[in-house]
Design a protein around this nucleic acid. Structure first.
Length: 179
DNA sequence: CTCTAGATAAACT
DNA sequence: GTTTATCTAGAGT
């Protein structure tokens, strides 16, 4: 049963923690995500199609990569048009040496969207590709862990929406969840 | 633990 | 032309 990229964006964001993500053969288990909706002031798609967010309006399962704060590449999974899930953290499992080499340090390898982007060796040119099992592979979670829920991080608009999801009991979350 | 500098594309006035 | 942004590393308290 493959992942349904066209389902409701909150359902998609909830289904990804526990899934396996590989980028060009390197990656691990997703442990933290955030949802960005169509009618969401915090979403890049809020003000319609632009050159930067074009990939967010691609078909479900599109890869959306953008540059944040001038120095960090962040990875998103596009759902329905204008909606996406930000991958905030993962557990390094495959190609750990490769990720450490790219990051330069052996700790906090992919705990945070910018670190994850660096560990996976992303580039802006990856935006618009697909999670089709080629360069980008996303396999559904096999076991359902307990899900943590909290407000999204680092945004100034609609900061109160509890659209951040994480896996309970794992190390490596970018930030702790409220009780 | 808190604070700050850094880095750049794109939206905004 | 100015401001902001889905952030991180490193220094300071």
């Amino acid at each position: 049963m493959p992942i349904r990229f066209d389902q409701d964006i909150l359902d998609l964001a909830r289904s990804l923690p526990g899934a396996r993500l590989l980028v060009r053969g390197v990656g691990g288990t997703v442990i933290e995500t955030e949802a960005y909706g169509r009618d969401d002031p915090a979403s890049h798609s809020y003000r319609g199609l632009t050159a930067r967010n074009a990939a967010m309006f691609g078909p479900p399962g599109t890869v959306y990569v953008y540059l944040s704060y001038g120095c960090h590449l962040c990875l998103n999974v596009v759902g329905q048009a204008g909606e996406a899930v930000l991958i905030r953290a993962l557990l390094p499992e495959v190609g750990v040496e490769e990720m450490i080499r790219r990051r330069g340090v052996a700790r906090d390898i992919a705990s945070g969207p910018g670190r994850l982007g660096q560990a996976l060796g992303l580039s802006l040119g990856d935006s618009g590709k697909r999670f089709d099992g080629g360069e980008f592979l996303l396999q559904p979670a096999t076991t359902a862990g307990r899900l943590l829920v909290g407000p999204r991080i680092g945004i100034t608009k609609a900061a109160d929406r509890p659209w951040r999801f994480g896996l309970a009991g794992v190390p490596g979350l970018s930030r702790p969840f409220p009780r």
